[in-house]
């Protein structure tokens, strides 16, 4: 469903992403781990078609993202690292607008139930989002993503800013979507949650995919060790 084939992104001489290949099938949750600057967001942005690859390609449902930019986006829902909303619109209006341009025509009660699902407190539904905390905005983003009923979910540290309870609920939501056959690619720093929800885990470093695991094959301490080993290798190289 979400596929990258030897995708490379260079900024001048700097290689942000180096021949990265991965594949996320329907019903899978793939967690990308890696230090800051490892290339996680770059990978996701390439799959979204926000940036063009230097070589290689990204595919959604078998279709090239670069050749079918608009079309492939119909199948994608995205939650950015730092989700921003229109501050003069209410949570409901933001949700209504984004789901509207995504092709969804939702009624008031449908919108409300989406926001309830996202875990946003009901008293905030009709408030302008200018005073929303990061976590509250993120929740509206989650509602927007669910509303789209996409087959592929691209998440760039979606739980950053969420309180533990909300983060936990979000994990449950992902499990539910997994059950519906959604393919999820998620960048995260949270090893614990990755181990808990992922079906597959990849560890990135300097634009390369260093290790891949099937989540059920590995325990949390093993994952932690693998992660730290990959990182330390860099220290040693220096």
């Amino acid at each position: 469903m979400i596929t990258t084939k030897k995708i490379t992104k260079k900024y001048g001489d700097f290689t942000a992403l180096d021949q990265l290949s991965l594949n996320v099938k329907p019903g899978e949750i793939y967690c990308l781990l890696g230090a800051n600057g490892a290339g996680k967001s770059t990978t996701i942005n390439l799959v979204l078609g926000f940036i063009n690859p230097t070589s290689g390609e990204a595919l959604i449902n078998g279709k090239s993202v670069f050749k079918n930019n608009i079309e492939t986006k119909k199948d994608i829902a995205y939650i950015p690292e730092n989700l921003m909303l229109y501050p003069t619109l209410t949570a409901m209006e933001n949700l209504d607008y984004f789901s509207g341009i995504g092709g969804q025509k939702l009624k008031k009660d449908q919108l409300e139930s989406l926001l309830i699902q996202s875990g946003l407190q009901p008293e905030a539904f009709y408030k302008r989002t200018n005073a929303f905390s990061k976590g509250m905005r993120q929740k509206v983003g989650i509602a927007i993503a669910i509303a789209k009923q996409a087959k592929a979910l691209l998440l760039d540290e979606p739980t950053s800013g969420l309180d533990p309870k909300a983060s936990n609920e979000f994990g449950e939501l992902l499990q539910e979507l997994k059950g519906n056959g959604v393919a999820t690619l998620m960048a995260t720093h949270d090893l614990f949650r990755a181990k808990e929800i992922a079906t597959h885990i990849g560890i990135m470093k300097s634009g390369k995919l260093k290790q891949q695991f099937t989540a059920s094959d590995i325990s949390l301490p093993q994952l932690e060790k693998a992660y730290l080993d990959t990182m330390n290798y860099k220290e040693l190289a220096k």
Partner: peptide, 11 residues
């Protein structure tokens, strides 16, 4: 505002 990425992702 930073809304552009969400906007673009809606296709």
């Amino acid at each position: 505002l930073g809304t552009v990425s969400l906007l673009k992702s809606q296709g």
